Deep mutational scan, measured.
Amino acid sequence: RNRTTFTSYQLEELEKVFQKTHYPDVYAREQLAMRTDLTEARVQVWFQNRRAKWRK
């Protein structure tokens, strides 16, 4: 699989949710996936990576 390149809009939306919660539930991830036109799996992985970056 190729690396996903996120648009500025997608990143904005993802970051907005990340500010509210670092662990969005499956419903929140589904909503976000629909809004950003990404798969729920991509959203889930983005949050995993974002949490790792945040911990550093």
Rank of each mutant, 00 (worst) to 15 (best):
K53L: 12
A28I: 06
E12D: 09
W46I: 02
A52K: 07
A52C: 13
Y27W: 10
L14P: 01
R35K: 08
W54Q: 12
M34F: 12
T39R: 03
R55V: 14
E13R: 02
K20F: 09
E30D: 03
T7K: 08
A52D: 08
K16S: 08
K56H: 08
K20H: 09
A41T: 14
A33H: 03
A52N: 12
N49C: 10
Q31K: 12
L14C: 09
A28M: 12
A28G: 04
F47A: 00
F47S: 02
R42M: 15
T7A: 07
H22A: 11
P24N: 00
A41V: 09
E30I: 04
R51K: 04
K20Y: 04
V45R: 08
N49A: 12
V26P: 08
F47N: 01
S8K: 14
Q19E: 13
L32S: 01
F18E: 01
Q19L: 12
T21S: 11
E13M: 10
P24Q: 00
R51Q: 09
P24A: 02
R51P: 04
Q10S: 02
T21L: 04
D25N: 04
L11W: 05
R35F: 00
R51E: 04
A52T: 11
R3T: 15
N49E: 14
T21Y: 09
Q48W: 06
H22E: 09
T5P: 08
V45P: 01
L32N: 02
Q10F: 00
K16V: 04
L32R: 01
F6C: 06
L11I: 07
R29A: 05
L11N: 08
S8P: 12
L38M: 06
R51N: 06
T39E: 08
E15W: 04
N2Q: 12
W46P: 00
M34N: 08
S8Q: 15
D37G: 14
R51T: 02
V17M: 12
R3Q: 11
A28P: 00
W46M: 02
E12T: 07
A52W: 05
R55H: 12
Q10I: 03
V26F: 12
T7H: 08
V45L: 14
E40L: 13
R3F: 15
L32Y: 01
K16Q: 06
F18D: 00
V45E: 14
Q44K: 09
Q44V: 11
E12S: 10
F6E: 06
Q19Y: 08
R29P: 00
R1G: 12
V17Q: 15
F18Y: 08
T39C: 11
Q48K: 14
T21A: 08
R42I: 15
E30L: 15
K56L: 10
T21W: 06
L14H: 03
Q19C: 09
P24G: 01
R29V: 14
Q19G: 08
Y23W: 08
E40H: 10
A52Q: 07
D25V: 03
S8V: 11
R29S: 06
Y9L: 12
A41W: 06
E13I: 02
T7L: 06
E40R: 08
A52M: 10
W46S: 01
Q48P: 00
E13N: 06
R29N: 02
R50V: 02
Q44P: 01
A52I: 15
R42K: 08
W54R: 10
Q19N: 11
R1D: 15
N49H: 14
L11S: 08
R35I: 10
T39S: 07
D37H: 11
N2P: 05
Y27I: 15
K20S: 09
E40M: 14
T5D: 15
T36Q: 03
V43D: 01
S8E: 15
Q44N: 14
E12C: 05
R1L: 07
L32V: 11
E13P: 00
Q48N: 07
A52Y: 06
R55C: 11
R1W: 06
N49I: 05
K16D: 06
L11C: 07
T36M: 04
W54K: 13
V17I: 11
R3K: 13
E13Y: 05
R42V: 14
E40D: 14
N2S: 10
W46C: 01
M34Q: 13
A41C: 06
Y9C: 09
Q48A: 14
R1E: 14
P24S: 00
W54V: 08
E40A: 09
N2Y: 10
R51G: 02
F18P: 01
T7N: 09
K56P: 06
T36R: 01
W46A: 00
H22D: 04
T4A: 06
T5V: 14
Y9H: 14
R3P: 13
K20C: 07
W54N: 15
A52P: 01
E13C: 05
